[in-house]
Write a protein that binds this DNA or RNA. Structure first.
Lengths: 303, 303
DNA sequence: AGAATCCTTTGACTAAAGTCAAAGAACTAT
DNA sequence: ATAGTTCTTTGACTTTAGTCAAAGGATTCT
């Protein structure tokens, strides 16, 4: 039974919260949104307003998961109300671009104002201390819910998702290192596949948002490289999960020690490695961008 | 502008959480519910299952806010599926009672099982520590959201709501005091109205869930009596809010000192009074059920 | 150049959700 | 006893939300 590992009391608490919250807050939110307008149209209008330069119908369809015909009609309805403008895509004449008119934007802003007033009214009766506590609890909940929805998977380093992560990683650290970063320093797909190593990607709602690579260094010793987390997914504890996956992978390959190096500017990373049981060691390899070297003894303790 | 007192950042955080939560969790919940059945029917079935003895259609209509005709038809649909049984109300033949059949109950249980599995799956990827943290954060959020929805109002002590509170109060302490409690000890409506005093009731979604009385004792001195909180609304910090309302009321009446007495068995109450700035004093009145006497100096400090 | 694919529009439906008003049976107040 | 009220049922609608397939123009692949 899949619930075995999760205490029933926690499941009950989650469901209780869910029920209370959707009834109290979610319902309100839905209600204000569709003031005079069907909810579907209101949602669509909001989504369009989110992209100031305009969006293609194709993108919207993907984002909202709507049927093409349904979307086409709703767009037409919004257009006839003067809230959006439709135009051809400058480069691809199959696509249609949609964007809010000033009227549409005013409408969205007004609805946002109302939603804000509603939210403020909700917080209003609480004391400042209680409000702080509520917001903190919600922020924590959201962080953990996000984390729970993220899966870490082994993928081939040659896949577009893996390449996208490595490119983003390279861009990030190129911006951070005073000396910049050259992409040629990235691992090649062959270095982290098959016997040589492994590559892991973390996904949030099908989008790759973090990665990490494991490479066999020598007999019984692995190296962890390119641990990266998307800017908008930081502070969730995701790097730890990537590390754990890589360490687990190392163990199954009979690697009982993992090493890694890091740059002087990445102080948070260093702190994280220490917190995860890594200890600083002398240089084990002469690497251009490395200032600190770490190592961790992996013991196959029951988790 | 009504949002003035609430920082915009907090409003934004609340809305962000709301958006994320309804999209991630609320949607799931709705989805499982209507497995083969329209959502409306599923919700109705669940609501009926909540009341084991059966409910009247009238009550259901109030609870779910449905149109009478709509409800009638959905009830008939559920009946034809063998999930509920309709019968006449034993005392009022206008009303119809509805209750789940064994088949209906099985169905509800099955859906509950699925919802639990879903919730468990959600918590599954988190470490036990993270799960504890999430549940704690949600519990805190829920507590504070409930508290935010509760209003404290001055009402006449002769109203049904006030009497209901006092009756519940009397029943509660009758069960707790070894010597029992006699209702004749309750304040009379005249003692807490007009010049003589005031009565406050706390409401949660239109239901009275807490109360407290203020009575003028002598020149500049008031007495607080009958501070009670419904069993299901305890540990929200509601007693404090009742106290604050009564103290505020006292101040506006020129009472600068408030006193109260309490029974030896009510230790949490004593701790609460102390935490709210009350200090123990010698008996100021000879009262049957009193073992401890407290007093608080009210200074009109800006809040 | 032609075939295959992509994207949007349109027509033709369906199911769900809900609204409104009339009617009738049952109860309550006077 | 009667007038007014309450509650449910039924008929007759409407709106929303969505699905599916055909068709046509635009692009991409080979």
């Amino acid at each position: 039974m899949e619930t075995e590992s999760v205490p029933a009391a926690q499941v009950a608490a989650l469901r209780r919260f869910n029920r209370y919250f959707t009834r109290r807050i979610g319902a309100l939110d839905d209600h204000y949104l569709g003031q005079n307008r069907p909810l579907g149209e209101a949602r669509l209008l909001f989504e369009i307003a989110e992209s100031p330069g305009g969006v293609s119908l194709r993108d919207l369809r993907g984002r909202l998961g709507l049927d093409a015909g349904y979307l086409s009609r709703m767009a037409k309805a919004l257009e006839s109300q003067g809230l959006v403008r439709l135009s051809a895509h400058p480069e691809d004449n199959r696509l249609r671009m949609i964007e809010t008119t000033p009227t549409g934007l005013t409408e969205v802003k007004e609805q946002n104002r109302r939603a804000n007033a509603l939210a403020a009214g909700l917080l209003d009766t609480l004391t400042p201390a209680q409000r702080d506590q509520l917001i903190e609890a919600m922020t924590t909940s959201q962080r953990l819910l996000r984390l729970a929805a993220i899966t870490v998977e082994r993928v081939d380093a040659a896949t577009p998702d893996a390449r996208a992560c490595l490119d983003a990683y390279a861009a990030d650290i190129d911006a951070r290192f005073p000396e910049g970063f050259d992409k040629s320093d990235l691992v090649s797909p062959e270095e982290v596949s098959g016997e040589a190593g492994a590559f892991y990607v973390a996904y949030e709602e099908a989008r790759p948002i973090a990665c990490g690579a494991l490479r066999r260094l020598e007999q019984g010793v692995g190296e962890i490289r390119h641990v990266w987390v998307h800017e908008q997914a930081r502070r969730l504890g995701l790097a730890r999960r990537i590390l754990e996956a890589l360490e687990q992978e190392a163990l199954t390959r009979g690697l009982t020690v993992v090493r890694l190096d890091t740059h002087a500017t990445l102080t948070e990373a260093q702190a994280m490695y220490r917190a995860c049981g890594y200890t600083e060691i002398p240089p084990y390899v002469n690497h251009v961008y490395a200032d600190h070297w770490f190592e961790k003894q992996l013991n196959n303790a029951p988790r």
